[in-house]
C-alpha cells in the first residue's frame, strides 16, 4: 500500500486534506466567533477571555502554530489545485456553460481560490491589526486585581473606521461564499455519498455559512453604526 506521504500527495489524499483542514478551520471560526461575541457581554469579559488565552503560555504558541499550519496547508493545497487546472486544460473553451441539474458549479465553487486568497490576504492584515496593533503596543489595565489587555478598545476603535468596518464586511461576505460550497464539499471530500443526505448537507451549508458570517458581520457593522460607544457598549 502507498506510504502515508505518497498518499498525502495523491489527488485523493490532497482532497482529503483540504477537507479535513477546512473542517478544522470551520471549527476555529465557530470558536473565534464565540470569543468575539463576548465583546458585547460587558466591558471586561472579552478582555478577560483574551487574558485567559495569554495565560495558556507555550500552549498558546502550539495552538497558534497548529492554526497557522492548518491555514497554510489548506491554502497551499487549494491554490495548487486551482493552478493544476491550467495544466490539465491548457487550451480553454471558447464557450463554456454548466448543464445545471445535479451540478454544483456555482459562483461559490468556481471562485474558491479567489475567495481563498482574499481570506489569506485578509488574515495577514487582520492579525497585523489586532494581534500586533499595526506595530503599536497594546495598552493594558488592571481590573479586579488582574492585569488585562485593552483589546476590546482596539477592536472597537478599529471598527469605528469605515474602511475597516466595511472592509471586514466585504471579507466576511467572501467567506460566506467560500463556505457555502466548502462545507458541503468537505463532506463530499471525506466520502459522503450523494442523494437525499447530500441535498440536506448543501442546505445546512448555506445555513451554516450565513449564520456564522452574520454573527461575525454583526460585530464591525454594529460597532460602526452605533459609533463605537452605543448603548450596548460602555466602558
Amino acid at each position: 500500500m502507498p506510504s502515508f506521504i505518497k498518499a498525502l500527495k495523491s489527488q485523493v489524499g490532497r482532497k482529503y486534506v483540504t477537507g479535513i483542514t477546512g473542517v478544522f478551520l470551520m471549527l476555529f471560526l465557530i470558536g473565534h466567533l464565540g470569543g468575539n461575541l463576548t465583546i458585547f457581554a460587558g466591558v471586561h469579559t472579552f478582555n478577560n477571555y483574551t487574558h485567559h488565552l495569554e495565560n495558556l503560555g507555550p500552549l498558546l504558541y502550539v495552538i497558534e502554530l497548529v492554526l497557522a499550519f492548518l491555514f497554510i496547508y489548506h491554502a497551499v493545497l487549494g491554490i495548487s489545485i486551482a493552478r493544476n487546472r491550467k495544466k490539465a486544460r491548457p487550451e480553454s473553451y471558447n464557450v463554456y456553460k454548466t448543464k445545471g441539474g445535479p451540478s454544483h458549479q456555482t459562483l461559490a465553487s468556481r471562485s474558491m481560490a479567489i475567495t481563498g486568497v482574499i481570506i489569506l490576504v485578509f488574515l495577514v492584515i487582520h492579525i497585523w491589526q489586532f494581534k500586533f496593533g499595526f506595530g503599536e503596543e497594546l495598552a493594558r489595565y488592571t481590573h479586579e486585581g488582574v492585569d488585562l489587555p485593552q483589546l476590546r478598545a482596539r477592536v472597537i476603535e478599529a471598527f469605528t473606521n469605515p474602511v475597516s468596518a466595511f472592509g471586514y464586511a466585504f471579507v466576511l461576505a467572501m467567506i460566506i461564499l467560500h463556505l457555502s460550497h466548502g462545507f458541503w464539499s468537505a463532506f463530499t471530500s471525506l466520502g459522503m455519498k450523494h442523494g437525499e443526505t447530500s441535498k440536506k448537507v448543501q442546505a445546512a451549508a448555506y445555513v451554516f455559512a450565513i449564520v456564522l458570517m452574520l454573527g461575525f458581520m454583526f460585530i464591525p457593522l454594529y460597532i460602526f453604526f452605533t459609533g463605537g460607544d452605543g448603548s450596548l457598549i460602555s466602558y
Binding site: 489527488q11 489545485i81 445535479p102 454544483h104 458549479q105 464539499s185 463530499t188 471530500s189 466520502g191 455519498k193
Partner: peptide
C-alpha cells in the same frame, strides 16, 4: 486535474452516473 467536487461531471454524464462514485473511490483509497 484534481476533483474539486464541482459535480458538473454528473450533470453531463450521458449515463447519469452519480458523483457518489467519487466518494466511493476516496473511501477505498483511505
Amino acid at each position: 486535474g484534481d476533483c474539486s467536487n464541482f459535480g458538473e461531471c454528473e450533470a453531463v454524464c450521458p449515463q447519469e452516473i452519480s458523483i457518489s462514485a467519487i466518494a466511493e473511490m476516496r473511501k477505498d483509497y483511505v
